[in-house]
Design a protein around this nucleic acid. Sequence first.
RNA 1: GCGAGAGUGGCGGAAUUGGCAGACGCACCAGACUUAGGAUCUGGCUCCUCACGGAAUAGGGGUUCAAGUCCCCUCUCUCGCACCA
Length: 824
Amino acid sequence: MEEKYVPSAVEEKWQGYWAEHKSFKANEDPSRKKYYLLEMFPYPSGKIHMGHVRNYSIGDVIARFKRMQGYNVLHPMGWDAFGMPAENAAIQNKSHPAKWTYENIAYMRGQLKTLGLSYDWDRELATCDLDYYKWEQRIFLEMYKKGLAYKKSSAVNWCPKCETVLANEQVEDGCCWRCDSPVQQKELEQWSFRITNYAQELLDDTYKLTGWPERVLTMQRNWIGRSTGCEIDFPLENGLGKIKVFTTRQDTLFGATFMSLAAEHPLALDLASDAQRAEVAAFIDKVKKTDRIKRGAEDLEKEGVFTGSYCINPVTSTKMPIYLANFVLMDYGTGAVMAVPTHDQRDFEFARKYNLPLKVVIQPEGETLDPATMTEAYTAEGIMANSGRFDGMGNADAKEAIADFLEKEGIGKKTVNFRLRDWGISRQRYWGNPIPVINCDLCGVVAVPEADLPVVLPMDAEFTGEGGNPLARVDSFTTCTCPQCGETARRETDTMDTFVQSSWYFLRYCSPKFSAGPLDREKVEAWMPVDQYIGGIEHAVLHLLYARFFTKVLRDLGYCNVDEPFSNLLTQGMVIKDGAKMSKSKGNVVDPNALIERYGADTARLFSLFAAPPEKDLDWSDQGVDGSYRFLNRVWRLVYDVLPVIGEAGSVNPGELGAEAKKLRRAVHKTIKKVSEDVEERFHFNTAIAAVMELVNAIQAFAAKDAPENVAVVREAVESVVRLLAPFVPHFAEELWFQLGHASVLEAAGWPGYDAAAVVDEEVTVVIQVNGKLRSKLTVAPDAKEEEIRAQALADDKIKPYLEGKDVKKVVYVPGKLVSIVVA
RNA sequence: GCGAGAGUGGCGGAAUUGGCAGACGCACCAGACUUAGGAUCUGGCUCCUCACGGAAUAGGGGUUCAAGUCCCCUCUCUCGCACCA
């Protein structure tokens, strides 16, 4: 054994061994329990960053731990490889996105291998591989045939810098989630997935996801945004039609005194009287422009304009003026709101501003509201008033009663409304999966026939950065014949949102080479669902909601039988340095390469696991890394030092140990117990590692290491340290295990179990409190009688002075823990 | 504004069920070995106090023999949502 720990030599050796033996290849094996472990796959941006190191180190601990426990572990890795940075790089370097992407993948794959992560590399996939995206095209067409993929013209979020459409989820603070440019509104024909068909199931199933963090589920539930209420028709005064509203407050219907429409409402301009027309048109224009910048801006003043038309409140028959209002959103509900200023704060402000009538229909108990003196809307519970036959009811009951009444009268009906919108997947970019349809002047949209699939991305596109989608300028691609009528037609040039690819890659990993379809059902059933998924919290809604949706769609298309893809979700925190997220502009980036070169992968892994529990942000500290490195060196030296004496040691004979040796052995087994629990039940790797450090300190403090009667205990202790460290620092542990003379690898050795008899304490410390303050301690046998301990506590030399001249009111005894004496 | 989470030494963090607050590591201090130390080893290290002891888990109140942990109020920070009718 080398005296000095040389990480590069050790790591090279074992990485070579693992590659050569395909140590992490996963095969279906019904005789063993399966465990599918997955970390979110990276975008091949060029090189890995510390966030990746952390994410994948966490995953690797679990993978290796589960393997040592005997599970059949599937642990795959791949590349989320389509997307704009590749296209931007192509423009800059006058190159091709494919070249850039595959070069990055090659480099980053090398980096991941350098970290010693235990992936089954035979399952590696890149979403830009034809062999991946062609199957997605097939899924798309099946969705199209079922009406789950459709084309519609709509106002979309448009990023002027990326020159592409963004889903609502991809707009953050009115800006593009990727490049941060202000998002504009634009009317465009685009493809969508009908995720709203699954809104209810996506919501319901959040309650089955008991292994997910509550805040992720809350975010998804809020995003889906289910609310129950009524749709109510308000006839126009002129008798020419009606306005449909959605409300959750049908109990306030009798108090509706005016109507507010979104500026984009289809009737907005039609309703304008001649006198109001100019003003209405100007308002619509203004709102649309505001929209572009930031309609959701804080405290945007409520503004509106009278259309000049009226509708009729269907239950009171009063005339209600129709306004356009800037706070009414076209894409929620029906784009029209019945305004009840007395019981809705927005309507209240609007009514005060434009002098509209107020009518109280809910009175708080023991109080009478007067519309003339109200300073804000009353939105809480109360008793119905001015509401005809519903007067006197509690408003909660009236909600139900009025809904029934509306249905009976044919004025309205109960409905459920969701905030969730359909998922717009069209992107006007080249580097994505081409949507496999053809636009024919005669036949309209025609699906590409299955025999003509796949639609291959042409390699001869030009990347100039100008003129929008490069794909649209490749004539050989766009020009085609209509499969239906045979006339010349134009191929669709929109590509799919990259979130589509990441919505089913975890399924494809189960049968990555399957050539008869996207998924081999048998394999999928063998591995799915993912037992543990690990990734950043930033995907709480986007990726994780889409992936859940897609899984359900694939289930309904008959590809799998899974309802939910991820049984357990771990959202790891960010890597922070000097109080900020690592970024080039802050100059606080730590380069994994430099770290590995200087300390080795094991130290990099160890520190990123030790510095904080996985779900918390990790504060990077260069000195902390030194500490982790020192620890490994200490363990190496310990093994080096004791190796000559423990080489021939047999197994421990617990009955023949001296007191000190017994104590060491107890520490060993207690540590095994604690590390097992910390890793298995809590993923608290920081405390697990701390426990091993304590054990190492204890071994070092154990004086008579080389006494013949102790060598077996020392060997057991040292070997336990090595085995317990295996998931965290795999190369390091494997090498020491080898040096300790083992012919087989650590995985074969398995995760150590603890000896229940060895962890039992020979004596326990019982603390003695007087009036809640710690005054003394007793050392007693674990099976000491309660009376004895109580008596000893009261007779204790340090306790006596506190009892003198006082009454002992009460003595509380907690077995094996403490005696609490209350005196007065 | 609404919702969720957090606040513990100089720092990262422990304390799993209400039972010895500060495990483990970093930094720092002292000592040993040493030509030397950014290596290694030993010891110290919350604050106040010479000490006995006392105080302390953002602040205030409460429950309890006992509170970092449970309850109420206030403050601060982080994240998510933000006119969703």
